[in-house]
């Protein structure tokens, strides 16, 4: 064995002494060790950022508005077929005489990857509305309830300002196009529904308890939005 090793070393030295030198000093990164599709189907963390444009339509008298905002997806690609994402949406909701504020939502979205490019998701979570001053007319409760908090039975005459949160649900179809090993771009169509427990601060307190006197009203919305974004892995 020692003889073989000595022969090998001698041969190697001999080769080294006589070969032509061709330095290739430009540093090289690795060639792809897997296809892009394989990489994106592999389990791991994903984060997506997108811009959305849509419409939130008020039901049973609740005000409507156009949505324009941003969305954040974070979650895990579980395997080639399934992912579990959490989505957060923050969008301005505005329309003359309608909504004037921020619509936000956070949902947990199990996602089925029908093909490497197409995915379908359904999500459930919270959604809310934060409004400042709006152009909507005020609606007063009965005089006898002015010094206590009051809950309106319906939303036919919506509160002039809503700050509240409730339940939100969505269904989403995503078409993704892989840009490279790190990023892909996507287009999404989302159908959303939301029930919001609105609270309007009257600016008054109950002096015996220091609790605010508020008005409450339930709003329901349905809507849709189109989103474009980029996902990183």
């Amino acid at each position: 064995m020692a003889v073989l090793r000595a022969v090998a070393i001698t041969a190697l030295l001999a080769v080294s002494a006589h070969v032509a030198r061709a330095d290739d000093e430009a540093p090289k990164v690795s060639l792809a060790t897997e296809t892009l599709a394989q990489g994106w189907a592999r389990s791991g963390f994903r984060l997506g950022l997108g811009l959305l444009y849509g419409e939130l339509h008020g039901l049973r008298g609740a005000p409507s508005g156009r949505l324009l905002g941003a969305q954040l997806h974070v979650g895990l690609r579980l395997d080639a077929r399934w992912s579990l994402y959490a989505s957060f949406e923050y969008a301005s909701a505005s329309r003359a005489g309608g909504l004037s504020g921020l619509r936000f939502a956070g949902t947990l979205d199990p996602t089925w990857h029908v093909t490497p490019n197409l995915a379908l998701a359904a999500g459930l979570g919270f959604g809310g509305i934060v409004e400042g001053r709006t152009g909507r007319a005020d609606v007063s409760p009965l005089g006898s309830t002015l010094d206590t908090s009051y809950t309106f039975p319906g939303s036919t005459h919506p509160l002039p300002s809503c700050n509240g949160v409730g339940i939100a649900a969505l269904a989403r179809a995503t078409y993704a196009h892989v840009l490279g090993p790190r990023a892909s771009t996507m287009v999404e169509l989302e159908i959303i529904g939301q029930d919001t427990s609105c609270v309007q601060d009257t600016g008054h307190l109950e002096p015996d308890t220091a609790r605010p006197i508020v008005r409450r009203q339930a709003w329901s919305h349905a809507g849709a939005s189109l989103l474009w974004g980029v996902t990183w892995r």
Partner: peptide, 22 residues
């Protein structure tokens, strides 16, 4: 991470490389 690269060596050639391994 695993690194992969393709090279072509001519006879009696000494090829010097620098590999960037992640």
């Amino acid at each position: 991470l695993p690194f992969a690269q393709a090279e072509t060596l001519a006879a009696t050639q000494e090829l010097a490389v620098t590999y960037l391994v992640e």
